[in-house]
Design a protein around this nucleic acid. Sequence first.
DNA 1: TTGTAGGCGTTATCAT
DNA 2: ATGATAACGCCTACAA
Lengths: 358, 358
Amino acid sequence: MDVDRPRKPTLDTVAGAVGVSRATVSNAYNRPDQLSAALRERILETAAALGYPGPDPVARSLATRHSAAVAFMLGQQLSASFSDPALSIVLDGLASTVDGHDHCLVLMPGGADRGGPRPQTVARAQADVVVAYSLPDDAPALAAVRARGLPMVVIDQPVLPDTARVEVDDAGGARLAAAHLLELGHRRFAVVTFSLRPDGGNGPASPARLAEATFRVSRDRLTGYLSELRAAGVVDVPVWECSGSRRELSRSAGRTLLTGDDRPTAVLCASDELAFGVLQAARDLGLAVPEDVSVVGFDDVPAAEHAEPPLTTVRQPLVDKGRHAGELALRLLDGGRPGPPTRLAVTLVERASTALHT
Amino acid sequence: MDVDRPRKPTLDTVAGAVGVSRATVSNAYNRPDQLSAALRERILETAAALGYPGPDPVARSLATRHSAAVAFMLGQQLSASFSDPALSIVLDGLASTVDGHDHCLVLMPGGADRGGPRPQTVARAQADVVVAYSLPDDAPALAAVRARGLPMVVIDQPVLPDTARVEVDDAGGARLAAAHLLELGHRRFAVVTFSLRPDGGNGPASPARLAEATFRVSRDRLTGYLSELRAAGVVDVPVWECSGSRRELSRSAGRTLLTGDDRPTAVLCASDELAFGVLQAARDLGLAVPEDVSVVGFDDVPAAEHAEPPLTTVRQPLVDKGRHAGELALRLLDGGRPGPPTRLAVTLVERASTALHT
DNA sequence: TTGTAGGCGTTATCAT
DNA sequence: ATGATAACGCCTACAA
């Protein structure tokens, strides 16, 4: 008559009850062909009677050295996964690839400073492969993943040794947009970008700060915009950095930028979300788009088409981005090697938010 | 001169190299105050030199018996988490609560049949608490979670012993909507619902099928609609079941329902997404909303306000739903008891898609 | 402050 | 077909 507290049954408990060894019980669950149907039946029954929930997943992971999960690291709060339009489309693509492979998708929190998950968080995450999305180039999380020796695929990140990668021609897309505006006769521009560095910077960005940008996407889009303009002789373009890709931020940026006599006739934004804010700012100031000011975005999220006016923007294949990342991740999961990066094309989508400068 | 293959270093390796015990190395990572700063420093240095990535998360989980993760089970594909508007708002709320607690969010794939994760998937998932959302009442996944003894919080599910729960008054909301339409003088109705059972059913739903519905949400909204109508003497209301909450499905449903002389003058939908499809169907058929037919939705997702025409709908606090679920989950994580269910209110939002029946 | 020893629950490799 | 036994890598009293 034991007085033990009701401890959860384990493989051992069941083995003892049935009178077989642990190995056999384990086999009953994982290799039905390794034991007689009758014995297996008896084991499973006793297990049920004992309330044994089946092999513990953590213990199994320890023994098998894999956990049937793919992790996703982002540079933002967890909730951005579901609220940021562009990000959630990428995740949709990733998820649709992972779906049907019976793997869980582990979302790692990125911390409020946009710097990506803390190394400690990475160290604790249980996954067989990790997908990193738009982290600062020098994010500690990237090093932490490498330290753990986990295979990784990066999206919108610089080249990293031994890492699969899907990339988009951000600079080229940005140039397309700038060229479009130049063709329309614009000569006075402004640029609105999201974070250049994960430090919450918000406001006009100095050339020095531009040079120090650690977010590859911001940097490339910005460089694309500015270099195309410079090639056409347009210099001294004001750049406004928003601390995130949220329209409230660009709205107030827009209100400043679009005020004054020498206000720009065209605003280049690093994302559609930022462009929406600028559109709102123009409305706030009584400026007509595109008559008074042209606005272009980047991404071509679904809302771009329904904006007021419909937004001219650079389309990038967001779903494909996620999908490819997923495929690369699955390949790495199977022990495959990284291989060359997947390159995705961008296109300019001309809508009604841009027009000839009259 | 060993010829070992380069095996990954473990706590032991480091301990050996430094000349201390495993426990001390472990403490260096987890309890800095348990050893001298100097020794700790030396340990960490050697670890770095050896390429030791720090304590293995799986082994740690096995020993500590928790894994710093909260799991989310849904009745759909993983990708629905990011593409289904209502679901992603709930997840946004959940994520914003979990954010800052340094826990990962584990999304479990639900399988294509909407029946929820397979028991086997549940058995392998590594998490300390699980949140279940809108699964069939008899989903095997629910039993699997209980079998594992994991604490659980359910959203939009029937009462379950020993389980935290957040619930919404779906039936009441539905009654509100039906009453609204009755007041406007409507007498001929149709109802469009999403899945009643996880079997892909799509088409007119018989009373028998209604009675057998296993999705609590579908059942309650449907019951709310029909009982309110019945109380007003309106019977024989056709119900169309769509196999998912997607507008393409309800669009074709709508085209059938809105055809014929005795077509309904009002359509009650189980979700906004379904209502959008019906709106489209009306357009397809050249019917004006609300002049020819009134349409109401359920949820009040952001798009409802911008629909053409703006959609009358039952608002439920989606973000709060997720947030509360998150709070309950965190409480369970801390060893708290389930407590009474959190009840959330719904309200009718009258917009332009409903009007007097003339 | 540091070390010892036992445990966490499985899987995997050989024998038998 | 089954069973011993050794990993898997770490945590944590408790002892020293």
